[in-house]
Design a protein around this nucleic acid. Sequence first.
DNA 1: CCGGATCCGAATCGATACTG
DNA 2: CAGTATCGATTCGGATCCGG
Lengths: 235, 235
Amino acid sequence: MASRSYGQYCGVTTAVELIGERWAMLIVRDLLVGPRRYTDLKQGLPKIPTNILSTRLKELQEGGVVRRAPLYRTGLVYELTDYGRELEPIVLALGRWGFRQMGEPGPDDVVTADSLTMALRTAFRADAAAGLPAADYEVHVGEVALRVQVDGEHLRIAQLAPPAPPVGGRLPTGEADLVFAAGPGIRRLISGELTPAEAIAQDVLAVVSGRADLLEGFASTFHIDSPAAVPAAAA
Amino acid sequence: MASRSYGQYCGVTTAVELIGERWAMLIVRDLLVGPRRYTDLKQGLPKIPTNILSTRLKELQEGGVVRRAPLYRTGLVYELTDYGRELEPIVLALGRWGFRQMGEPGPDDVVTADSLTMALRTAFRADAAAGLPAADYEVHVGEVALRVQVDGEHLRIAQLAPPAPPVGGRLPTGEADLVFAAGPGIRRLISGELTPAEAIAQDVLAVVSGRADLLEGFASTFHIDSPAAVPAAAA
DNA sequence: CCGGATCCGAATCGATACTG
DNA sequence: CAGTATCGATTCGGATCCGG
């Protein structure tokens, strides 16, 4: 157990001892969306071995990052403590930083509801949104469907359950102003590599219904600059 | 190699694939202080196996985070790329977050020059410093000696070479307004758990020379609030 | 179905030794 | 100074199994 210690008395070291182990940060990412059951986490992290999930949740609890809470009469959720929730700006900043180095998706890469929710949060530009009229989008990426409502600087994202009826949370009523479907290539819209028109032309995105003109607003509301160059170093 | 992939197409995931491996974040932390040679890094991370350091540096270069640069005629340094340097606010925020969960130092824990430098940066309160007169401290923690100069919102930290050859080799000391020495317990001063007077009384800190009254200014310039409670969960 | 625990082979890490 | 090489100790990944 002491083998995990980095042997330094330092805040950064303590932080990575708490949330630096493999998978831990992704568990935190998903819990930032909301409390999750063990099975939810396992589904949202399809490649995590179950024993690792179990171990990480124990460690995160010991570290005061995560708490177990009963749900209804039977059932159980994991949720972030107040201390754990303070990681939100850090995880968002990390997501923004990592976004810029994302390449094309690997053949086995998936987009989960929680990861897309957090990705939109990282890309959200409150300043840009404040200058636009309120908008209500329904975004589909792969199997994931999200209702994304932007009103001034306020962002609200709800996950639409595609295979099953919604659980607990009340879903937005009424139709979205714009419904569109995309693949992982939506990254290139958010990075500004493609304009909405180009994205449609290149088939990375398709409008299902509603006002296609709102795509411009979507693209300026959710945006992460690609740097001039983030080259992988040559050998 | 593909075994390292988390199988998700997401910015956070990409980020932890780049800098989430064991030791990687600490390498970045040290490089945020300045370019470092291989040997410097090894010294600053006493417990890192040399093959791991070597591997991480290669991975960080492939990820576009770190670059190798020649130094003088012979010699070699590792330094952050522009992209890597953008991690600075994230690492500082992580340090601030982790600081609050730090307990007492383990028997083998060390404080290195780079980790203390970054710790002071994380704790620096520009707003508090702006209201105080400029001050020039010399801080000793264990073997580490730092020259810490605060002028308004500007902070400058220089590392004084501690393993000074024989006692005669005096470094640019003596000019600081206040010279003091502490142990790891300096954490309790920065957290506000102890006032400067209490820290001296409890022997966690000793004024070597200069104006002891400046300790108040130091404590308000470098401060990280401990939350009301950051409890470790019970079993 | 939920919430894990157990087992085992594969990959990684840690410690030390050695080299250009 | 700047790393490789080696090898035992851990951890991770994948699959299966188990009690409510």
